[in-house]
Structures are given as C-alpha cells and as structure tokens.
Nucleic acid binder design. Structure first.
Lengths: 240, 240
DNA sequence: TAGTGGTCTAGACCACGAA
DNA sequence: TCGTGGTCTAGACCACTAA
C-alpha cells in the first residue's frame, strides 16, 4: 500500500480526538438510550477510515459515555455509578449545599513527628507543613482539622501573604491534587479543647477521621479531623 | 484490498484475546517496570497485523496491567490504587484477619415499611426479606445489623432449611452481588437494647452505618448496622 | 435484506527516546 | 540512527438485529 497519510500528526489536529469530541458534544445532555451516529456515518462525515472512528468511540465507551450493542448500534449509556472521588472539605460542604469557611489556628513549617514522617514517607524531623484549622459550614463550626503536608511536593505553600482558601484548590492549581486517599473513621467523645472550639459540650460524641492522601503514589497529605457527630454524617460510594 | 481473512470469527479463537492473554500470563508476577514484548515482536510471533496487537495491548493498558511510553516501549504498570469495592461484613473481617460469625435474631418476610419501600424502590407494603443479625469477630460481638432485601431479585433467599452463612456470598452465587453501594455513617450512643446485645455499657459510643446497595442500578439491599466504636474503625479508599 | 458493530489485514508516516 | 509507540488508510468478512 502506498503512502496514505503524512501521519496526520500535524499536532493539535488528531482526527480521532476531533471525532471523539464531536460525538461527546452531540450526545451531551441526551437521554440514556439515545442513538449515537453509526460508525459508518462518522466515516462519511469526517472522510476517515473506520478504524479511526472506532478509536474515537472506544474512548467514549471506556469513559462510560457510550454503550455499543452489536447488530443494533451505539447509544448513550446510562449514567455510571462511581465510587467516591477524593473530595475536600470545601467540596464536601458544597455538595451539601453549604458554604465552607475556615479559621486558621496554626500554619507553620515544623519538624515532622515520627508518626507523620512514617505516614508521609519522610525522614523523621524532615520539615513538613502543618495547617490546623477550624472549619465551618454556613457559619457554624463543624470540624477541627490538622493537616501535615509534604512540603517538598508543594514548596512555599503557606509562605504567601495570604493562606489559600482551600487546600485542595491550591494543590489542584499546582498539579498536585491527590489522586487516591484512604480515610479511616472512628467515633469517640470530645476533649475539653475540642469541645471549646467546636462549641459543643465536653464529652459530646464526635467522629474522628484520618486521611492519608497520595498524589501519583506519593504521600502528600495526612490529616486528622474531628467532626461534631450531631451535625455531620459521612457518606461514601463504593464500586463493584 | 482482496479478501484477507474469514473474519476470524471462528468463535473461541479471537486473535486479540489470545494475544492479550498471552501477554497477561507473560507479565504476571513481573516487577513494575519490566519491559513487555514490543508490538512488532508480537506481530511477528503471532503473524497478525499490528492493529490486532494494539487491540490486545489496549485492553491491558485500560485494565492497568501495562503502561505505554512513546519512543521507549511498553512496561508492566505499578499496581493501581483503587477505590473500595462493595465488601460484606465477612470480607471486611477477613481483611482484618478475623473470623466473622453471626447469630440470626430475625429472618422473615415482612411488608415493607414506608422508608424501606422508598429506599428499595418498591410499592409500600410489598413484601421484603428482613434479616437481623448479631455479628461477631473472633467470637466477640462487633455489630448489630438489620438488612432488608428486595425479595423479587433473590426469591426464596431465606426459605431454605439453613440460612446462608454470608449474605453477599449467597447474592454472588445467584449473580446478584451488589455492583455499587452508598454507605452513610454517623456516631451516637447505644440504646439499652443495643448495649445488651453488643455487651457494652448503655450509652457507649457507637457508629451507625446505613448501606444502600444496588445491583445493576436496581436497589437490592438496604441495611442499618450499629458498631461498637471501641472495637471498630471504618476505612475506605477513594479514587482520583 | 439492509444495517450495525466486531474483527482483521498490510501496509504507511510521524514524533520521540536511547545509543 | 534505529526501535518504539501513536496515528491512519482502505478495504475485507463475520455475526447479529430489525424490518
């Protein structure tokens, strides 16, 4: 077979990407079960080989946007139930229709305590950022959080004149948003200090949540949070 | 181009599947970073077109078994961090190295209460299975669970002479294992009844967990469980 | 029977990485 | 420079579904 194509790698003009995005737009907002264009339709419309169309549709099928039925056609897939993503307090509150605020109690570079160093995979006493905050939803205290952040991955995070509003927004902006996390949850009662800050009775039931978050398999944040149990429920979705 | 191939759909002999499984076996147990055969090697070995090899490798890349690096080659991928799967109490305990047991307190077909009917997507008063159990780990009481199961999806589940050991094993055997679930978690104190069964002081801190589990987008189980907080921590993994 | 997706061929040129 | 993966062509036959 003779030369067919310069490789089409003219950059920024990948055909399968163009087709994929065309179809994505086309079916955006369509009800599940709506028919997508057939592969041969797309071949004609874009004047490409069928393999190219299939490459485009394969991506959408893998993403869960489309579903193929041999002999029938390609259709908009029903929305996929997904396991929970790693969410920040701010996002968690937004999902509940509340506005998150926080009051910084402590923001400093410290020598990592042994437990923190182990969890973050650092040498003990290696500097880490510690950020302790009281977190509020619609103005009332919900949770007390104490986060240790691996400073080598986000240099200068707490150095600016203003502290970031949201840790995860800041990590996202730096391309360091956690890609995976493990949350461990237990219940107990508030200590006097916790009670004072959370404005609840000493001995009130609280939920304690420890998070270990990784970015690309590298530990980036470990935090302990204490929630007033009378004002908070933790929900999460599990995959099949 | 003339006829090349009978379609190869001779059944049970899909080339890309054969190649995929060959490569999967080849790299099974290999350390992350180990080189996989190059695409052109596989083309020669199997005497197929390169597109066919790519189809095979695409599947393994999507699965997270392999990673491709343009210009370098294809390599065994590092193990992927995954979000939590829907686990049963039995599996949860096994993961902690404990043996799960249970004592059935109630197993009956009842008219669904309004709340349960709503959660399971049933008509109120439509029959559902109710299964209330005390659950133990290595012999000591850990949790009290009360599950409602949509009987139309698993007819006769509690009718046999013996009750199943594990609800999820039984659902799995019937091809009805939940594919997705949402767990909601709160904390509180034990009621006198709960305290008696869990063998803990009245007023002890407990974790309350509600699960709504779906099989193929259809609600199949809703349950409420009460855990002794002094003996239990709930962990879950979140995806990126 | 016509149309759909599933599989496959036998080439091609490209950009990129390592030597 | 050579080998790798990334992209693409212009066809082909198959099984399956719906009319």
């Amino acid at each position: 077979m003779e030369t067919v194509d310069r490789g089409t790698a003219d950059r920024r003009a990948l055909k399968h990407v163009a087709i994929r995005e065309y179809v994505r737009d086309l079916v955006a907002g369509c009800a599940p079960g709506t028919a997508a264009p057939s592969e041969r339709d797309l071949v004609e419309r874009f004047s490409v080989a069928r393999m190219t169309v299939r490459q485009a549709l394969d991506a959408l099928v893998t993403e869960g946007v489309l579903q193929r039925f041999p002999g029938r056609g390609t259709f908009v897939a029903p929305p996929r139930r997904r396991p929970s993503r790693v969410a920040s307090f701010t996002e968690d509150m937004a999902g509940r229709g509340a506005v998150a605020e926080s009051r910084t109690l402590l923001a400093e570079k410290v020598k990592s305590p042994a437990g923190v160093a182990r969890a973050l995979g650092l040498v003990p006493r290696e500097p880490v950022l510690r950020w302790r905050r009281l977190r509020l939803a619609d103005g009332s205290p919900v949770c007390l959080s104490d986060a240790y952040i691996s400073s080598s991955l986000v240099p200068g995070l707490l150095d600016g004149p203003d502290l970031p509003d949201s840790l995860y927004d800041e990590l996202t902006a730096r391309g360091r948003r956690p890609t995976w996390a493990e949350d461990s949850l237990s219940a107990g009662v508030a200590t006097p200090d916790e009670a004072a800050l959370l404005e609840c009775p000493e001995g009130a039931v609280v939920i304690r949540l420890t998070r270990r978050a990784l970015w690309e398999d590298r530990p980036i944040e470990i935090s302990r949070s204490v929630y007033r149990a009378d004002q908070h429920t933790v929900s999460f979705q599990l995959g099949g």
